[in-house]
Design a protein around this nucleic acid. Structure first.
Lengths: 333, 333
DNA sequence: CGCAGCAGCTAAACCGGTTCAGCCTCGTCG
DNA sequence: CGACGAGGCTGAACCGGTTTAGCTGCTGCG
């Protein structure tokens, strides 16, 4: 190490000085920092990772079939939020996009065996999730996005989907809707199940006993098909709650095509806001959340875990409903 | 290294055997591989990176203001395509989302000084791009997505935007349009400039001498504003070409709001297809490209560069125009 | 004055691989 | 039969940091 030579000390001293560890005098530390700056020195990440048994990287795997991924700004905002916190600690983000859960698990195994990451972020939790068992078995630190529950000892960061769903149903019922349907996302996702339960409970609390729920894969096609099915039923709903914005947009298109006016004859609510919802005609009432802040919060929790803290479940803000022009009182019929 | 002990050879031999290098007999190699499998051995990435002076990772920085990022599936498809090629070589992808070009440059500097990545992928090339100079100066291998031209010695993978733009204009002119406008993206992006040039040349070739071009930041808001400005002008266009799908969607909404029927009174073409374009009403005529394949092709080029090949410019397929219902002959007026 | 204790530092081991000079053992050829 | 070359393998250096045992010199206390 030529900083050591130039400063006339041993490389051990340099290491202590640069890492802010005790063991060197302030005078020496200052001299070493000075030399390091002069030489524009930066630690070699591999060397540091090797001896410290850290990689200074965390991993994120996105496992969704290609067609259902990418229209939502959610992931980018999440990633941005994560990095806002992580980059201050010089922690990099390894991203891998895979087709399915098996591939995702293989990635975790590989990352772990090669010591590529110090921790991973688990997203889109399943009802029975094999990843949780795997990560606990590997002892690979992980943070679950979207708890609580069903994820063993792993810490999580989550938002209260149940409360959010209740606020949507309350809004619709408050407008006078009695025939409310829900077009949900992938049925084996944990948050789909939670939203479904909350939906059932919320409509029941308003004395509504029939409220259909249709499952989809989040794609516009299936959202459109489900909407068509609902609107053609004998007693069509006067309001539909969609699990994402893409399906809501598709739903509005189908309604228009079938001559069902939005919001006059059909109210539409989208879960997850996006520029789309505002561009559409009419602009969609949507549930917004601050995904960037959510990511930042997740990163902070993860850093705590990396620092050895006992992982806890942290609750983020409840998403709020932004009322635009796609919801109104149902037309008397 | 306990594989060495268990197989009764030196660790040098083990290294050769596991990396397929000459220097060990096939019998020994077989025995070593056998032991490695038994022990479920995997190389420690940091150790390998340290001695081989490689990191087995490539970096991708996305520098767009948060608001304009994320609605397009483009990046995820690109990343998926990249990884389809890279993961076979056990090369990881480091992703960083930053606000602006300065931050992006800082990330390159840091990655390079810490030897975090072996190469980077440069995207959204600017007309005068400081990143090109930086990467050449650092001698950090890089692949430019979206050439050719303006990127010094760096190799690139590109699609012929000019031809694609010509095909759009030809399509519109063929339908009988004589008043064609273009709503472009960020003016300092190289491909914006190239598309602009191609647009000018194409309309000129059809004897059209006035064809307004408005610059935006790709956001729906600015797309809507630009559309409004065009439609309210004394001699409004009968066709508008948008630089992305979000603006096209916003444009259709504005047209509808102003009582301009699509496609009867206004034809709309979107650059870049997405589920959106098909969901909308009417479905949008759009320029599609196989972004996944594009990413895979880019990854192959990058691997060649890493293997020491002289970087070349590789041309990908020309994007093709998919005709849907947002374009038709102009109404006689 | 003697000795314990501590701050400040050095030297060397260590992390887990890769690389290479050099040694041994054959087989081949003159 | 001896020299030579090639194949197969060993042992050690090396990558660039971190960590630790231990040394030195100073201070403080009995």
């Amino acid at each position: 190490m030529d900083i050591a030579r130039r400063a006339g000390v041993s490389k051990g001293a340099v290491s202590m000085a640069l890492n802010g560890l005790p063991g060197v005098s302030e005078a020496t530390r200052g001299r070493i920092l000075e030399v390091a700056r002069e030489l524009d020195w930066h630690p070699n990440n591999a060397a540091r990772a090797l001896s410290a048994a850290r990689s200074d990287a965390i991993g994120l795997v996105l496992a969704r079939p290609a067609r259902t991924l990418g229209v939502e700004p959610f992931f980018f905002q999440l990633i941005s939020g994560l990095q806002a916190e992580l980059s201050g600690r010089r922690i990099a983000l390894l991203l891998q996009v895979v087709e399915d859960l098996d591939a995702e698990i293989a990635v975790y195994r590989q990352w772990w065996s090669e010591r590529r990451v110090d921790a991973v972020i688990l997203i889109d939790l399943r009802v029975q999730d094999p990843r949780v068992d795997l990560l606990e078995e590997l002892d690979l630190p992980a943070l679950v996005i979207g708890g609580p529950g069903h994820h063993g000892r792993l810490p999580s960061v989550w938002a209260d989907d149940a409360k959010a769903m209740t606020s949507i149903v309350d809004h619709l019922a408050g407008l006078g809707h009695r025939r409310i349907a829900r077009i949900a996302g992938l049925p084996d996702l944990l948050h789909t199940e939670r939203r479904t339960e909350a939906f059932r409970a919320a409509v029941a609390s308003h004395g509504i006993d029939v409220a259909p729920i249709l499952m989809t894969d989040y794609s516009g096609e299936q959202g459109a098909a489900a909407t068509r099915q609902l609107l053609r039923s004998p007693l069509p709903p006067t309001a539909i709650v969609y699990d994402n914005d893409v399906m809501a947009v598709a739903g509005v298109a189908v309604a228009t095509e079938l001559g069902v006016a939005v919001p006059t004859s059909l109210s539409v609510v989208a879960w997850d806001d996006s520029p789309l919802c505002q561009l559409l005609h009419p602009p969609l009432t949507a549930l917004t959340r601050d995904t960037f802040a959510f990511g930042a919060s997740a990163a902070r929790s993860l850093l705590l875990v990396l620092d050895g803290a006992e992982g806890a479940d942290v609750e983020d803000h409840v998403p709020v409903l932004v009322q635009r022009e796609s919801t109104s009182a149902p037309s008397p019929n």
